[in-house]
Design a protein around this nucleic acid. Structure first.
Lengths: 165, 165
DNA sequence: TCATTCATGTAAGTGGTTACATGATTCA
DNA sequence: TGAATCATGTAACCACTTACATGAATGA
């Protein structure tokens, strides 16, 4: 596929847990080509090119996937805001939670639409079970976010004075 | 507090959703001092200094907390590995899920220990309800991770052939 | 006395985004 | 004909980590 198509595939298929920018994709594709891990072919239009994975590239991909996942530094701005909720005030915090709940509910609908689409897919049969477990992970965490938000909104309403000390 | 103490506080109190390195903390403290948002005082030992938030600094902090949270690029290596599970193989994937479950279970115990500690806390009363909702969020997502892992392990066992296509 | 913790800071490097510049192709 | 999409790439910049260098204080 082309660099452009790589980006579209990452956005559309891995969008829930991965992202890459053009500024990352094009130089990486060149570097992989220099290492002999992808091959560059002429594309359908002038100046465009299509890349394909070489056997070397595929085996490197597998060995990278086998390596333990290096943890990225945590930075959750939403939780940070709630931790300093006293400084932000209970009303602003409550609103943040309302928003988070709405986002989660919308997200859950998206997951379910994607699940339906993947389930009805007749190609990529060998990938389906794996894709479905990643979707399931998304559904679980999103449902947990909704349940937490409801519980938290309840607290804001029933124990409002605690948040005003 | 000192830069060193700032780091310890971030590690111990915000560790579940935030992290900062010394290479970030010391230059930032100097920059904040130059902006008049923190004040530098002599510490107890030679060469050490203690910083305190000025009124300007506190109001900037609040205005930063009020700003919408700029989303960080998603990069979840665990989900990536499962998405490419077909390339990694069902056994390696299953092991990843077993590990994830174990980590989550351990994490849940940590949350519950911290909850007990915060609940018995007699200082910082005004922060307590906010801190508890962040802990609750951690508990919810961690329990969801455990439930997802159990469900997924079940799938690996009951529908093993689907993962071998 | 010696390991650990407290303490400060810098330099090199990495990994990444954003914005920009450019232009062909498709299709309404 | 003009908007949207396909397509490639670079340059400037930013946030951040890691490793390094240094040393005082504490306490077993």
């Amino acid at each position: 596929m082309s660099g452009y198509a790589v980006r579209a595939a990452i956005r559309d298929q891995l969008g829930f847990f991965w992202s890459e920018s053009f500024g990352q994709i094009y130089p990486t594709l060149s570097a992989l080509q220099a290492r002999g891990e992808v091959e560059k072919h002429d594309g359908s239009r002038p100046g465009s090119s299509l890349y394909s994975l070489t056997p070397t590239g595929r085996s490197r991909m597998v060995s990278l996937l086998e390596q333990p996942d290096s943890p990225t530094p945590r930075r959750d701005g939403f939780m940070l805001r709630l931790f300093f909720g006293r400084s932000l005030g209970p009303d602003a915090c409550r609103e943040l939670v309302v928003h988070a709940r709405a986002n989660a509910a919308q997200q859950l609908a998206v997951y379910q639409a994607i699940r339906a689409q993947v389930e009805s897919e007749t190609d990529y049969l060998e990938h389906k079970p794996y894709w479905l477990i990643t979707i399931s992970a998304g559904e679980h965490t999103t449902r947990a976010a909704i349940a937490w938000a409801d519980e938290t909104l309840e607290k804001f309403d029933s124990a409002r004075t605690d948040f005003l000390l």
